[in-house]
């Protein structure tokens, strides 16, 4: 009898834990700061289109460093160009403090990672899979494009395809990796745009 009560209580607790308690543990400040981001990045950061990245379930450390590198800094009252290239993200990060950015990263990284459902070009996927440079990528990003050992390395398996391609071109053109940052990505400078497109499509296809 004692055991069955324990079992029942445990079941109730499990149900509570799986619904409301998990909800209550959300970083509500992060959700508030980043709630409007989903209009471009998809609900809870799961993008449905091809050129804007999914951010829900992305590694927290990478989210923080990305956002801070896109944020313009002010030195002696003068606004400095952000370390990392962006089109409009630099505008938004100007409006947030470092702590607010960390709270947003906390919330978005705690959302589920939803691999892209964007229709992929199977021909490109196959070319990417056959690329001689594939191992160069997987050695850091993992064979499934999700290296969980190092949160600073972005999750790219299932990421949106055109975003991945644009990101690779940015590394190739020194728009993200100036000043020796992410120097390991300098490897893409030797790879043709065509092959980068195929590699991007292949990593998008990973689940």
């Amino acid at each position: 009898m004692h055991k069955s009560i324990m079992k029942f209580t445990f079941a109730v607790l499990l149900i509570a834990a799986s619904s409301n308690v998990v909800m209550a543990q959300e970083n509500e400040d992060g959700r508030r700061y980043g709630n409007f981001c989903s209009s471009c990045h998809g609900t809870a950061g799961a993008a449905v289109s091809d050129a804007i990245p999914s951010i829900g379930g992305q590694h927290k450390e990478f989210l923080i460093s990305s956002m801070l590198e896109m944020k313009p800094t002010v030195v002696d009252g003068k606004e400095q160009a952000p370390k990392r290239y962006s089109t409009l993200m630099k505008i938004f990060f100007k409006g947030y403090s470092e702590d607010e950015i960390k709270a947003m990263a906390d919330w978005y990284s705690s959302r589920p990672w939803v691999p892209t459902n964007y229709p992929l070009n199977q021909d490109l996927v196959n070319k990417g899979k056959a690329s001689a440079n594939l191992e160069t990528c997987t050695s850091c990003h993992g064979t499934n494009g999700n290296n969980i050992e190092d949160g600073g390395i972005p999750r790219i398996g299932g990421q949106t395809p055109t975003y991945l391609y644009h990101a690779l071109l940015e590394y190739k053109n020194n728009k993200r990796n100036a000043d020796g940052r992410a120097s390991e990505m300098d490897v893409v400078k030797e790879i043709s745009d065509e092959e980068l497109r195929a590699l991007a499509e292949y990593f998008s296809s990973l689940r």
Partner: peptide, 8 residues
């Protein structure tokens, strides 16, 4: 992409 994502 923005258009498709905001619709979604």
């Amino acid at each position: 992409s923005w258009g498709n994502n905001i619709l979604s």
